[in-house]
């Protein structure tokens, strides 16, 4: 299981967000460059349609592959009361021939993306990961070198933390309280519930940039 919230930020404020995250987390950022392939089961395979994501980490000297399955999110009154989405998520690191395996099993490529940006991993009541990335699409199959942004000028921010059936409410509380620190720059909400950019972002970014000692244009 994992707890997750998402938000968007204008690219011009990403540097300010990075300064803020750096100050809050106390760790260095990691570069992020992930080729994500979304596969769906062919029409005659499986009792119901299924979907799986293959993530290729292009930042590593030798690209590494992970299979990710995102399951249904928690529902009901309890789930409505918390401000983060709790869903099942299983990952498995795999060898590089995984795409061929799923093609042979009868899965088809639905779409592919390239996420480029940075991430922070740190402990703050839970093992939290914050990723800030521009989402790009490929004009030609697998051509990651020729990717173009899906939404130019806008980047996706995602805050996730692993959780279990026993501790998800504590983890969700940790994620929520962390998100409050980012509120002047961006609003984070459950995936699918888009709240847009926040009006205070420009002022907050300007303030952060001056504190950060960076020259502001």
């Amino acid at each position: 299981m994992e707890c997750v919230v998402q938000g968007i930020i204008e690219t011009q404020h990403v540097e300010a967000l990075e300064i803020l995250l750096q100050g809050l987390c106390g760790v260095h950022r990691e570069r992020l460059r992930i080729h994500e392939l979304c596969l769906k089961s062919g029409p005659n395979l499986g009792s119901e349609a299924s979907e799986v994501r293959l993530l290729c980490d292009l930042e590593q000297p030798e690209p590494t592959w992970t299979v990710r399955h995102v399951g249904g999110s928690m529902r009901g009154a309890g789930a409505d009361q918390i401000s983060v989405l709790v869903r099942t998520m299983v990952e498995s690191k795999v060898s590089k021939n995984v795409l061929r395996l799923f093609y042979l099993l009868g899965y088809k490529l639905d779409h592919e993306l390239l996420r480029v940006g940075f991430a922070f991993h740190f402990q703050r009541g839970a093992q939290i990961a914050v990723t800030v990335s521009s989402v790009n699409k490929m004009l030609k199959l697998h051509a990651t070198d020729e990717a173009v942004p899906v939404t130019p000028g806008i980047q996706l921010v995602e805050v996730t933390a692993p959780a279990s059936a026993e501790n998800y409410s504590e983890v969700a509380a940790s994620v929520s309280s962390f998100c409050e620190y980012l509120a002047p720059l961006l609003h984070l909400s459950k995936p699918g519930v888009s709240t847009g950019v926040v009006p205070t972002a420009a002022a907050a970014a300007a303030s952060l940039m001056s504190y950060g000692g960076t020259t502001i244009m």
Binding site: S50, E91, S92, V94, Y107
Partner: peptide, 17 residues
């Protein structure tokens, strides 16, 4: 294919094999 043993859980969830 070499995978982390969690691939078994993923295969179960996919319900295709």
């Amino acid at each position: 294919l070499e995978a982390d043993s969690t691939i078994q859980t993923i295969m179960e969830k996919l319900q295709s094999y």
